[in-house]
Design a protein around this nucleic acid. Structure first.
Lengths: 196, 196
DNA sequence: GCTAAGCTATGACGAGTGTCATAGCAAGGG
DNA sequence: CCCTTGCTATGACACTCGTCATAGCTTAGC
């Protein structure tokens, strides 16, 4: 079967996500990317004629969908369960990457790259973030929250998690994330009980 | 008097903060920086023998102190007033920069640059973030919150604000920030009333 | 006026960047 | 068998990067 490991194209995408997490957008070069993916440099432009912006855009979108699927499944068991899974996911990324690895979406959003076709990755990042917010807020609305309230809560969750990841990267410690996580869960539980 | 505008050194620092906000760490080059600051390239290494890491580090620290001072003053009128000032500050940065400008501290924290003396800027970023958290949490403790609770609340605030800034950059809109801000204030007010 | 210190101007260095063109290879269908 | 099609290998293009050395200028103090 054609799987991750013998499909150079997919390997390039995965490597892009990984490098994006650890180095950021502008510190991730096509050459280094190809080397890590065990793919020839020339192949990059064969599989991705749109060049770096296209590859990065795809990597961001794909990572977003992967996490979105995980989030979606966990949310089926309720908003709190969904949040807990979302948090656990990021916590493990931070720990396994020893606080060098963050979120590829953040990497794209912080680096400008306001060049030519470079709006592509940023647009991908925006859509991923919005999709996460939508997943959570939809579930909150099913639990009786009003539209705007649900959007606010979901946005706060995503913002706080991404921000927490940044704090951990900065001070090389999991503490900020754990503090943020504990409070988010506590507040969400409280909101749910008020609704019931 | 020797003021901002005729001191090349200070002008370089200010320009560094500005470029950091808008372009990110690795997209901010010394050459561009010097040009924007109307300073000769050679002068950069005269004033900052430590090169780019030193200049970036100073810019981050200085921006952090500026905002820290503002935050500190506003906190004197109470935690809620402090939060409101903090939020207003960032909101105006986002609007004035048309969502292209974020926080220099975030820029440094997301970009790796795990090179040689490059731990310097990251350490500066960490200290700035911790100082903001400390300012807020100290004030919360004075209002009766326990150490850990105060730290958690303060960390959530900083993380959510920085995360909110990222969301706004991504989707080129102030909406995420406003949602986050509203909820943060509402929750803090509630915490304060419970304490009283 | 003259010297000393502080700053600027200029240009180079090696390395790295995204991008692409072209020549080569392997394998599959006719 | 040949020959098309899909991929790889190689190397070049025109930059830009951080950094630094050195020579020149300006200005203040004696």
């Amino acid at each position: 079967m054609k799987q991750h490991n013998d499909d150079p194209k997919q390997r390039l995408i995965d490597t892009a996500s990984d490098l994006l997490r650890r180095r950021g957008l502008n510190s991730t070069s096509i050459r280094e990317l190809a080397k890590h993916a065990n793919a020839p440099l020339g192949s990059t432009y064969h599989y991705f004629p749109g060049g770096k912006p296209q590859l990065i855009g795809i990597a961001v979108t794909q990572t977003g969908q992967r996490i979105g699927k995980l989030l979606s499944k966990a949310l089926a068991a309720g908003p709190v369960a969904g949040l807990e899974a979302f948090l656990a996911q990021w916590r493990s990324v931070l720990l396994q990457g020893e606080f060098k690895a963050g979120c590829p979406v953040i990497a794209v959003a912080s680096d400008d790259s306001s060049a030519e076709g470079e709006g592509v990755p940023l647009a991908a990042a925006a859509e991923v973030l919005q999709s996460w917010v939508r997943l959570i807020s939809d579930r909150l609305r099913e639990r009786g929250q009003k539209e705007e309230e649900a959007m606010a809560t979901a946005t706060l969750i995503v913002a706080a998690v991404e921000g927490g990841i940044l704090l951990c990267r900065a001070e090389q410690s999991i503490t900020p994330f754990d503090r943020v996580a504990k409070l988010l869960i506590q507040q969400l539980k409280q909101q749910m009980s008020e609704q019931a």
